[in-house]
Simulated scan of single mutants.
Amino acid sequence: MPKTERILKVMQRVYEKQTFTVSQMAEEFGVSYRTMLRYLHELSELGVPLYANEGRHGGYSILNARQRSLPEPAETGLQRLVKPGFHLVGMEIKVPFTAYYMTQALKPKLWTELSSRIQEIRYPRSTRGQDWIAAVLSRGPVYHYIAGIEVTAIGTIPPGMTSLTLPTREYIVYVHEGGTGREDTDQSFIYVMQQMKQRGLHYNPEMYGLERRSRLGDDRVQIYIPVAHSVNPGDLHE
């Protein structure tokens, strides 16, 4: 099993168990105590709120004052669709994955600057109500976030901006509402992973996911999770 996939599975079990010991987790995943401890340290660096309990019977707990269960997305059920290939032009953040937290302060500024320079982008797909779309590569060694808009063609890229072309791809789409912090988004993500697994579908961490907003600053975000296997686009719809 690839390391990225194993880390995701460990993260899911951490949220499910809430309280555990390193030995318990190491036995469950068939790895050494030291290896599991390293995984937990990596999760902590990525923002998973782990708390070390001291004492003979100590272990780890999720530091979560709300102690809530995994939330269901705002709209009942998940939508499975194929989104046609498209071009995206916008502004980017690219940092080591362990520096994810620093992007939380940068993202709003990125969107604000993009909004102020939107007229510089040529060939926007929509000339009326704007869809703000972020392409996100968030589960690998590099965190890459592009805040942008769809365009019908890539012309001259404005200074300080970038472009990305994404092929036709199958996604699972759900609506996330509320906080955009790591804990909130991870719990929604884990819920969707569980639902996908029940349907025999698998997430592809090597592909870009999408975040789609109808207006900036909105806490209601459509999340597109790329599916690992290919499908016949004629069997699905956007």
Rank of each mutant, 00 (worst) to 15 (best):
M1V: 14
P2I: 06
P2H: 07
L8T: 08
V10A: 09
V10Q: 14
M11D: 05
R13V: 14
V14L: 10
Y15H: 14
E16A: 14
F20D: 12
M25E: 03
E27C: 10
E28V: 01
V31M: 06
M36G: 11
R38I: 02
L40S: 05
E42D: 14
V48A: 07
P49V: 04
Y51Q: 11
A52F: 13
N53E: 12
N53Y: 06
H57R: 14
G58D: 07
G59N: 08
Y60L: 10
S61E: 13
N64Y: 12
A65M: 11
R66T: 13
R68W: 06
R68Y: 02
S69C: 11
L70C: 08
G77H: 07
L78W: 03
L78K: 13
Q79M: 06
R80N: 11
L81N: 09
F86Q: 04
H87R: 08
L88Y: 03
K94I: 06
A99P: 02
Y101A: 12
Y101M: 05
M102I: 01
Q104I: 07
A105L: 12
K107P: 12
P108A: 02
P108K: 02
K109T: 13
W111N: 01
E113W: 04
L114G: 03
L114Q: 00
S115A: 09
S115V: 00
S115D: 07
S116Q: 11
R117N: 08
I118Q: 01
R122D: 14
R122G: 02
R122K: 07
P124V: 04
G129Q: 10
G129P: 00
I133E: 03
A135K: 01
A135R: 06
L137T: 05
S138V: 05
Y143F: 11
E150Q: 05
T152V: 09
A153D: 15
I154P: 09
I154F: 07
G155K: 07
T156H: 01
P158D: 08
P159I: 00
P159L: 03
L164T: 10
L164R: 07
E170P: 10
Y171V: 02
Y171H: 01
I172F: 04
I172W: 00
V173G: 02
Y174W: 05
V175P: 00
T185A: 03
D186G: 01
F189G: 10
Y191E: 05
Y191C: 05
V192D: 03
Q194N: 14
Q195T: 03
G200H: 03
L201M: 15
Y203L: 09
N204P: 05
M207A: 07
Y208K: 14
R212N: 03
I223C: 06
I225K: 00
S230T: 15
N232Q: 08
P233Q: 12
G234A: 15
D235V: 13
H237G: 13
E238H: 06
